[in-house]
């Protein structure tokens, strides 16, 4: 495992998200006022500016909105190429940047994906996504 990747600086807003991942839970937020789902974590709703924000567990399912196969990377990722980075749109409507796990020629925009919890270190887990029908 690549231990040198940029480590998120956990703060009060982001801590529940990162802690959730360590427990194999993908958490997003929802605004109590306008009901819009929110990612990344915030203390205000970017839609209606309400402070009534609640955490909720996401389904972990979504589809690929776009992706790229990285052949030339920098710093700690240099040795890992080629790898696939994508934007996944969760069924809840929010988008996340992530790694896509799967055969290069199987990966396509709009394909369905499911979250997998990739343990990087004891207190650091990343949500990667793999093709739902890969098995």
């Amino acid at each position: 495992m690549n231990l040198h990747i940029p480590k998120p600086v956990y703060d009060e807003e982001s801590k529940p998200f990162w802690e959730g991942l360590n427990n194999d839970e993908l958490l997003i937020q929802q605004c109590r006022s306008c009901h819009k789902n929110i990612f990344y974590p915030r203390s205000f709703c970017p839609n209606c500016f309400s402070e009534e924000i609640q955490w909720k567990k996401a389904s972990g399912k979504g589809k690929i909105y776009s992706y790229t196969v990285v052949h030339h990377a920098f710093g700690p990722f240099k040795e890992e190429t080629p790898f696939i980075v994508g934007i996944v749109e969760l069924d809840e409507g929010v988008r996340m940047l992530t790694r896509i796990i799967g055969e290069r020629n199987q990966v396509q925009i709009d394909k369905e994906v499911t979250v997998v919890f990739q343990r990087i270190s004891e207190d650091f887990t990343l949500p990667y996504f793999m093709l739902s029908n890969a098995n």
Partner: peptide, 30 residues
Amino acid sequence: NTYSAPLTGQYEQPYGLPGTVGSYALAAMR
């Protein structure tokens, strides 16, 4: 390159997207 990812960068930098070119590649692919 930086090795810690604060603020909103924490949701992107850990995945290794080569910042600028990777982002434009995502747009081109779409």
